[in-house]
Simulated scan of single mutants.
Amino acid sequence: MTSRRPYLIRALYDWVLDNDLTPHLLVAADAPGVDVPRQFVTDDGKITINVSPGAVRGLALDNQLISFSARFSGASYNVAVPPGAVLALYARENGEGMLFGEVEETETASEETFAGRERKSEATESDGDGGDDTPTRKKHPHLKVVK
């Protein structure tokens, strides 16, 4: 069964923006697959990130990974966060949003193996091989907020 967390994150993100508020993510920085600037991680292993359209570039709220580019103390950084590592999404102005709780493990070892084969399959597809029988994941549409 797929996790509901990435769907809730997208819905809450849209809700916060629709109410002219500033969306922030609270992330467990020590969770597997999280790539954030370590100097901004708190002593308890968390980082809060402003993900408003004016603060980030190229925001992708996908089912497997949330990714974007943001500036931290003037330096650009590419951020990658699995949705399972998001502990909360809330509006800075009033704190309204949703607390997700503990880190959610989204992939098992067998799923990671399948994902590795899938990346290999994508590489051979670009070579024009076409004879690969490896199943590929369905592409989901990407939603972007345009103002």
Rank of each mutant, 00 (worst) to 15 (best):
T2D: 11
R5F: 03
P6M: 04
P6D: 03
P6Y: 10
I9C: 01
A11H: 10
Y13W: 05
D14E: 12
D14N: 09
D14I: 05
W15T: 14
V16F: 05
L21E: 08
P23Q: 00
L25D: 00
A29D: 02
D30T: 12
G33S: 08
F40L: 09
T42S: 14
D43N: 14
I49Y: 02
N50V: 09
N50H: 14
S52T: 07
S52F: 06
P53I: 10
P53K: 06
A55L: 10
R57V: 12
R57T: 15
I66Y: 01
I66M: 05
A70P: 05
S73P: 03
G74S: 08
N78M: 09
L87S: 07
A88L: 02
A91C: 11
N94R: 08
N94G: 08
F100E: 03
F100W: 05
V103W: 03
E104M: 09
T108Y: 04
A109H: 07
T113R: 15
K120L: 14
S121E: 06
A123E: 14
T124L: 13
E125A: 11
S126P: 01
G128V: 12
D133G: 03
D133A: 06
P135C: 11
T136Q: 13
R137V: 11
K139L: 15
K139T: 15
P141L: 04
L143Y: 12
V145H: 11
